[in-house]
Design a binder for these strands. Structure first.
Length: 444
RNA sequence: GGCCCUAUCGUCUAGUGGUUAGGACAGCAGCUUUUCAAGCUGUUAACGCGGGUUCGAUUCCCGCUAGGGUCACCA
């Protein structure tokens, strides 16, 4: 029997990490076993469904490259559900019951209840082992709002059976739903699939991730500039591990290494820092063109907002610098918004008191700058400048020479080193900035 | 509250009836061409508690505690 697995998201919100990881585990399991990965949209709650969410689920799965082999919407199977329900009623395993409506007790409705044999059910969970429930406390639970409107548990059982689902890999929050679904299965005479309930993803305070407090939608992280490979790699290791010390996995390696046995029993706290680290691992391997295109786009918008003139050539030179300073593209947005890149595109302004190194006088600083300018104007290539300047700085005190130099070039307390700045700004621009700083120094 | 699940560094985790309890992220320290970033090196840090079983339990069993899930005419 070939493996068939599914995820069953409801279109009542954007695709979030939990669902994405469940999708990943199902997808990996299917790929590993040459099986079929199915996405079934559980859209039977018309009041809460939104087209927007429906589309988002597929859009994000596509982005994560977790595309399904088969797709359908539960609403398309209404007839099959109704038929199965009918059969259950006809054989006396379920019955209609006229009761006051829950939302409006003045009205009555005819719900369908399962005739619960009230036995003890034990099922084997691949992750947790045997789990036993006494189902008598479930009583004759409601399986359909009416003969034509089956509820979630009923539809799930019928759909899983019709789709030939062999393994149900889903969140742990469904463990307690399982016995009632098994009851329905047995009433219908269906086989039981293999169950594997995966641990939940927790917020940093170990509580359940709530949509209120944490935005865990995949689209948000995508918009922040996280890379799909990083997200996949991180999510794969949340609640699963290969039993080795390997942490960086390509897609293929993941497929090869994956097994249900490696799934963790306990919940896992989502750690943004580690995700960022993973993202950086993938970011540094992005090819130059892709990286440059993304960075340029972000930079252009960010600088425009600050009213800083755009310089395409200058931006190009900044790429290696940007690459070493960010973990996620969104970091670049903050950096630019904080004015950390302004000085590459426009002249900095100076606080004259900050120009000298802590231990030197304004006169010293002026002299060092004058000498640095001299060196800079008399050498042709940057490597030469660096060598001579470095020698000079070593003689006079590195901080004493290098700090004012760097500050002259950037106007910032924190920035890349002066040699990098000179290389990017060029000799002419560097020279005029040094001159401007010396001018400013006279005011002290 | 009933039922169910879970319990190794702050976090993700490896692991064993006898281990220096391993790795990664974060933290800290040092190094690296002042500062910042990156990188490198080193380092702090864990078997929840109480009973058993056993020559010996972090590991097996029981209880406790704690955390989580679930108890719809939602999915």
């Amino acid at each position: 029997m070939s493996v068939r697995v599914r995820i069953a998201p409801s279109p009542t919100g954007f695709l979030h990490f939990g669902t994405a990881r469940t999708a990943l585990f199902n997808w990996l399991f299917a790929r590993k076993n040459g099986g079929t990965f199915i996405v079934r949209i559980e859209d039977t709650d018309m009041a809460r469904n939104k087209q927007e969410y429906d589309e988002d689920i597929f859009e994000q799965l596509r982005w994560l490259k977790l595309e399904p082999d088969e797709t359908y919407r539960q609403s398309e199977h209404r007839q099959a559900h109704a038929d199965a329900l009918r059969a259950l009623i006809d054989t006396g395993r379920a019955y209609e019951s006229e009761e006051p409506a829950k939302d409006d007790p003045s009205k009555t409705v005819r719900v369908v209840r399962l005739r619960n044999p009230g036995k003890t059910i034990t099922f084997t969970d691949t992750v947790h082992g045997d789990i036993t429930f006494d189902t008598s406390e479930l009583k004759d639970f409601v399986v359909a709002r009416s003969v034509t409107e089956p509820l979630y548990h009923f539809a799930v059982v019928v759909d899983d059976h019709d789709a030939g689902i062999t393994h149900v890999i889903r969140g742990e929050d469904h463990i307690s739903n399982t016995p009632r679904q098994i009851l329905i299965q047995e009433a219908l005479g269906y086989d039981r699939p293999v169950y594997a309930h995966i641990p939940l993803i927790l917020a940093p305070d170990r509580s359940k991730m709530s949509k209120r407090k944490h935005d865990t939608s995949v689209r948000t992280y995508r918009e922040k500039g996280y890379l799909p490979e990083a997200l996949i790699n991180y999510l794969a290791l949340l609640g699963w591990n290969p039993g080795t010390e390997q942490e960086l996995f390509s897609r293929d390696e993941l497929v090869r290494a994956f097994s249900l046995e490696g799934i963790q029993k306990s919940g896992a706290v989502f750690d943004d820092e580690k995700l960022r680290w993973f993202n950086r691992q993938y970011l540094v391997t992005e090819d130059e063109e892709t990286f440059a295109a993304t960075v340029t786009h972000i930079m252009k918008i960010g600088l425009e907002k600050r009213g800083v003139a755009w310089d395409e050539k200058r931006a190009k030179q900044l790429m290696p610098l940007v690459r070493e300073r960010i973990s996620v593209y969104d970091d670049l947005r903050s950096l630019i918004a904080d004015g950390e890149f302004d000085y590459f595109f426009s002249r900095p302004t100076y606080d004259p008191h900050r120009i000298p190194d802590k231990k030197s006088t304004p006169e010293d600083a002026a002299a060092y700058l004058a000498h640095a300018a001299e060196i800079l104007s008399s050498r042709k290539n940057v490597a030469d400048v660096k060598e001579v300047l470095w020698q000079y700085a070593t003689e006079k005190g590195r901080g004493a020479v290098l700090w004012p130099l760097r500050y002259s070039l950037s106007g910032k307390d924190k920035s890349p080193d002066p040699f990098v700045l000179i290389e990017i700004l060029g000799a002419d621009e560097s020279l005029s900035r040094i001159a401007a700083a010396r001018e400013a120094l006279k005011e002290v």
